[in-house]
Design a binder for these strands. Structure first.
Length: 462
RNA sequence: GGCUAGGUGGCAGAGUGGUCAUGCAGCGGCCUGCAAAGCCGCGUACAGCGGUUCGAUUCCGCUCCUAGCCUCCA
């Protein structure tokens, strides 16, 4: 039985889809005006994991993750570059897709873009005006009147009065209340615009997600996710918009992933302490290391980004691939271990606990290998691969994986093989001084040797 | 200031009212020509102070500390 933590209640609850067998999930995706960083990668990876697990449970999942392709930041950045805003958004959307593919993320079922939903956004805004939740302010901005929506603040646990007193928002005479937020923004000269009943303008950020999610998944759907930082005001505002416009509940379970931190501080654009996925990947053996690292702690908690942590993830993942090496592909999955693994995943996607189960299987695998028990070896390997498949790791060929290097290769495979030939000859002649000299040479070049029984030597890159 | 989430062994990171997380690093042993890998074993961990309890790291209260949100943010 799957349990999921609901941000709305602050508690784990048994997950029951609104429609039997079917799950509808919406995740707030990226505003693409730059390359994605590790913090974005965590969000993308976490919901990729959830998508995979829900599917593995047999649910018919519709996973929607939007792209915000019109926004102040996009306009600003494009202007700074002297580039067309749409070209810029498109360029970075393509880059994001490339990064997602590199990270092994399965694409969402639907990836709506805000600019494709202008009609729906205008319609929803009109509905909110008609129902008295929104008003047209000066200049043609349409604002949502927060005080009209009684449950406002429920998701974030905030009270309107507290928010107001601590508000850093400049009191703006366009707004009736400082907390009111914009649904439709009038276009200033030179800015992109769409025609609307309130003049030329563009949608506010919050309304996009309400319009796209309800258009594609219906007014009331199962799961809505995003980074913790979107809880307020973004998701709070989505609730206010959607519930008011549709007269139905909006989302069954809200899910929020924790931040990636750098030196105990949130990784973000504004702090300037971010690392793009592209630059980080250059320092790693394989993109799988980053995925493994991101899944090695629970999705709701914070995770600290550092080279040391990545190195540890690399080492641990390497150990798992070493276990998988020299095993057959025809083993039968061990149901008991798999049940333990699933139990962990069922408990609000507890990946660290699930990984502990994987380590248990890896140990059994190594034990079976030492004992020369082929059937047991293959069974454990099959079990480990099956678990890995759910997490999206350990699906590569171990021999290939272990020969990957961190950064550039300092010596070619052919040169390594040549030196190993020479070493084999030396060892056969019991010339251990020569054999050790070659081994040290290879070690210096980042190649580690393992002598197996029968004169066989295996190698891998450090 | 308001609200929220946390403080677990050298590091990372789960979890639990009373036998075990797990991984990395370290130490000892087996194996090995020597290594490496693997296996076996080892290490007075649960911020502090009170309280509840036969028993608390786990429940309650307070204190201290950290992060996040309250402005765009995954």
């Amino acid at each position: 039985m799957l349990k999921i933590h609901n941000s709305l209640s602050g508690e784990k609850q048994e997950f029951k889809p609104l429609r039997p067998g079917e799950v509808r999930m919406y995740v707030c995706g990226m505003t693409n005006y730059d390359y994605i960083h590790v913090g974005h990668a965590r969000m993308l990876t976490v919901f990729d994991l959830i998508q995979r697990y829900l599917r593995s449970l047999g649910y018919k999942l519709t996973y929607v993750r939007n792209v915000t392709d019109i926004d102040d930041k996009i306009i600003e950045r494009a202007a700074a570059n002297g580039e067309n805003w749409a070209d810029l958004a498109q360029r970075f959307t393509v880059a994001m897709h490339e990064d997602c593919a590199t990270l092994g993320l399965q694409p969402p079922d639907l990836e709506p873009r805000a600019t494709e939903y202008i009609d729906q956004i205008i319609a929803m805004t009109q509905t909110l005006i008609d129902k008295g939740y929104a008003y047209v302010a000066r200049d043609g901005d349409v604002m949502y009147s927060v005080r009209k929506f009684a449950p406002y603040g429920r998701l974030s646990g905030k009270k309107i009065d507290d928010l107001r007193s601590g508000s850093r928002v400049q009191v703006d005479d366009v707004k009736l209340d400082p907390l009111d937020f914009v649904l439709w923004k009038h276009a200033k000269p030179g800015e992109p615009f769409w025609a609307s009943p309130w003049g030329n303008g563009r949608p506010g950020w919050h309304i996009e997600c309400s319009a796209m999610s309800t258009s594609l998944l219906g007014n009331y759907f199962d799961l809505h996710g995003g980074g913790e930082d979107l809880k307020f005001p973004h998701h709070e505002n989505e609730i206010a918009q959607s519930c008011a416009a549709c007269d139905t509940p909006f989302v069954h379970i809200w899910m929020h992933n924790g931040f990636v931190r750098v030196n105990d501080e949130k990784m973000s654009k504004s702090f300037g302490n971010f690392f793009t996925v592209r630059e980080v990947l250059k320092t790693l053996r394989d993109p799988e290391v980053l995925r493994f690292f991101l899944l090695s702690s629970h999705y709701r908690g914070p995770i600290n980004y550092s080279m040391a942590q990545l190195a540890q993830a690399d080492e641990t993942l390497l150990g798992l691939y070493r276990a998988l090496k020299d095993s057959g592909r025809s083993g039968i999955v061990d149901g008991e271990w798999l049940a333990r693994f699933r139990g962990a995943m069922d408990d609000d996607f507890n990946t660290p606990e699930a990984m502990a189960a994987m380590q248990g299987v890896a140990r059994e695998l190594n034990q079976a290998k030492s004992a020369g028990d082929g059937a047991k070896t293959d069974a454990a390997a099959a079990t480990l691969r099956a678990m890995g498949a759910v997490l999206g790791v350990l699906q590569q060929d171990p021999d290939t994986y272990l020969k990957l290097s961190v950064g550039d290769k300092t010596i070619s495979d052919a040169d390594i093989e040549g030196l190993l030939d020479a070493r084999r000859t030396a060892r056969a002649a019991k010339n251990f001084a020569e054999s050790d000299r070659i081994r040290e040479l290879l070690t210096a070049a980042g190649v580690l040797l393992e002598d197996k029984p029968g004169g066989v030597t295996q190698w891998r890159r450090a």
